[in-house]
Amino acid sequence: MGCSSKEEIENVYTPVQVSLKIPEIFQQKLIAPIIPTNNPLTEEGIALGKKLFFDPILSKDNTQSCASCHNPKKAFTNNTRFSEGVDGKLGTRNSMPLFNLAWNFDERFMWDGKDFSIEHQAFSPVRNPIEMHSNWKNVAEKLQEHTEYPTLFQQAFGTSKIDSTHVTKAIAQFERTLISGSSKFDQYLLGKTELTPEELNGFNVFMDEARGDCFHCHGSDNNPLWTDNQFHNNGLDETFNDLGLGAVTGDPNDNGKFKSPSLRNLAFTAPYMHDGRFTTLDEVINHYSEGLKQSLTIDPLMKKVNQGGVQLSDKDKADLKTFLLSLSDNNFINNPDFQQ
């Protein structure tokens, strides 16, 4: 009888519902984050997702976890241009930082938007041959045989039978809690701190249509995500080795388009662009200022492409960089909830 009553207790365990801690500035300016009704956030689900995120058990030879390429100290990316998978093969894209994913309202993830929804995205690294190169059957078996996981799945999802759906749901719950909203600039917007004259001028360069004109794609004081999460060709190449969105949609007009990354946390996320081609922010700024390349699908907002770019003065360049760095959020990378 002891056995069955234990089972009964497990079956009635209800996970504790939690809501996201939405930063004040997001609350003021943005619509609600996206939380799918079939995967509500719970304490147990988030804790399980976190454990899975940091656990190399998800990879073929138990050597690589999500965190290998998505390090909390680096705003959940890494600092190499490309990342090595378990087989030592290099990918062709720069790892992406992970934060504010629940505010990607179109829910299109990856540089080229190929994965719809956070849950769905989490399926791919496990079986990707240049990443964790495992398969879900093996992973589910390993987790099922583990001493702790079956109970944790029971508590989070009411079933100790482990499958890819619940693994990805748990990881997605954890990923939704990765919220970055307390940079120096956020504090400034809340009236809690002042910007230096350089940072202020840099912000004006960013916002001025006749100077940087960055805000049309990268957010603003009124869109504190600092991205539009849309796909653009920002003038990196004349011809494309990597078709980006075009390979996903099959539409040649989408070739060379990639998702605008958020400009939060740039202090931790070098190198930059989908292929990590720029090691410093100076290189990025020089690109927009005088390094633009004309191509078939270039975004019209790269309006000075025929002059090479927006031609910023040295002072404006330096100030723009200072401003960009004010969007970096030390509280985010040091948040104890996000460390292994």
């Binding site: 916002m207 001025d208 805000f215 049309h216």
Partner: peptide
Amino acid sequence: LNSVDWNVPDMM
């Protein structure tokens, strides 16, 4: 509208 970057900067 903020969420889809529809704003006009205050300087403009």
